[in-house]
Design a protein around this nucleic acid. Structure first.
Lengths: 233, 233
DNA sequence: TAGTGGTCTAGACCACTAG
DNA sequence: TAGTGGTCTAGACCACTAG
């Protein structure tokens, strides 16, 4: 399989970096020198270098040249999606609680609203063959007349899908993963006879104007709580 | 601040997608049509479209055109790095155990070695003001004469840094996050008086030939176990 | 066959770097 | 002042699509 020219030069330089022939901090040859060495136009060389730069191998410093990066360690990508979790493990979702509440201190902070804002709270239990494996609670600021929120009240199935589909390109999401022992309330509603370890996945959805659209926590029983990721540079 | 032309066209089309003027599945105008509309050369238009494509907004289909993507939900990037964790929370690291062991079933599977391979096992306790907050165990296949491994035995401080620095560009890393209740062994070595929730972070380092360089698990006490991430498309 | 995106070229002008 | 990377152009040839 013959690769395209800019991939060839990219792979060639990448190999030199991986083998340590080019070391972190080293300056590459100039675009001009590379285009002469590889017999390519400068734009084609640039395309190869851009790929290396996007993948974190090198950095360009205008006026000076390209430099081999010090590898950044510890960065991973992973996926988490309630709807995927549900498809994988959950046989049914039970609406456990649906309330309109006033914003307490935590909600004021997390949703960035004042104390008079009404909040829709939705609690769900995720069941697998009649056994509770996760408890999910989400809070939505209730803006009167907001067509999305109106549609959520009394929404039959799991509400998040609507939020995700509505305009996902205009959302920014944050996630926070931690762990906790089940407290008495959770043990009661999940019908656990003793304390269990839970993975707690906290999510916040924002729109492009930085308004918080949703804040919520999912508590997953340890046997069903796995996240997997891969390194990226 | 005047943006460069390819950023302008990128932002313009991005806005149309975010506002829903262009919807998932829609075909964009052709490169030629766009270059006439914006009065730009085709290469400049392409550069803008490439940015949108890299960010997950559109996909190009050769021979047909560019299409607006359906947003992929649930993908996040986050960082985890033992050395960062140590800097943030840990006042001292205690070597708890250093052994050469034979590969049992789990190690054979995780390290992809046979039963005769010798494995170096290093257990560390992470202390914060004399209190154990994490327990870390790592396994390295012992290849005789491997200069890296030789240097690890009896290595005074935390061993991972050497592995990370040695040749990080030629490594691929996997991570797996789960949660567990502390078992008796962990309670003993961490001096816990009762069961605690632990975040379990499992990491595997591979080289480019897919040899496993290291497999290990860190068990972190719930109060110190937080991972944060952001959405990416 | 006309239209699409993918690759590649040769050249231009620019701001910035560093002696 | 010579060299560097950043942007942009006008054009070429290609494989692929779909009527």
């Amino acid at each position: 399989m013959v690769e395209v020219k800019y991939v060839q030069i990219m792979l060639d330089i990448k190999k030199k970096i991986e083998q340590g022939i080019l070391k972190p901090g080293d300056m590459l040859q100039s675009e001009k020198a590379l285009s002469e060495e590889y017999n390519l136009s400068r734009m084609t060389v640039r395309k190869g270098l851009t790929l290396l730069s996007e993948r974190g191998y090198i950095t360009s410093v205008p006026g000076k040249g390209y430099f081999v990066n010090k590898p950044a360690t510890g960065k991973y990508v992973f996926s988490f999606d309630e709807t995927e979790f549900i498809e994988k493990y959950v046989s049914s979702v039970k609406l456990q609680q649906a309330n309109i509440v006033k914003a307490n201190d935590i909600l004021q902070k997390e949703l960035e609203v004042d104390q008079n804002t009404k909040i829709i709270m939705l609690g769900h239990i995720f069941l697998r063959e009649d056994k509770a494996i996760a408890y999910d609670v989400k809070y939505f600021p209730y803006t009167k007349g907001d067509p999305f929120i109106e549609s959520q009240i009394g929404y039959a199935t799991y509400p998040l899908k609507a939020l995700q589909n509505s305009n996902a390109f205009s959302q920014q999401r944050q996630i926070r993963i931690s762990t906790a022992l089940s407290d008495e309330y959770i043990q009661k509603i999940m019908k656990l006879d003793k304390p269990h370890a839970l993975m707690v996945i906290e999510q916040k959805y924002r729109d492009l104007k930085n308004n918080t659209l949703m804040w919520g926590k999912i508590h997953i029983l340890q046997d069903y709580a796995f996240l997997e990721g891969e390194s990226v540079f």
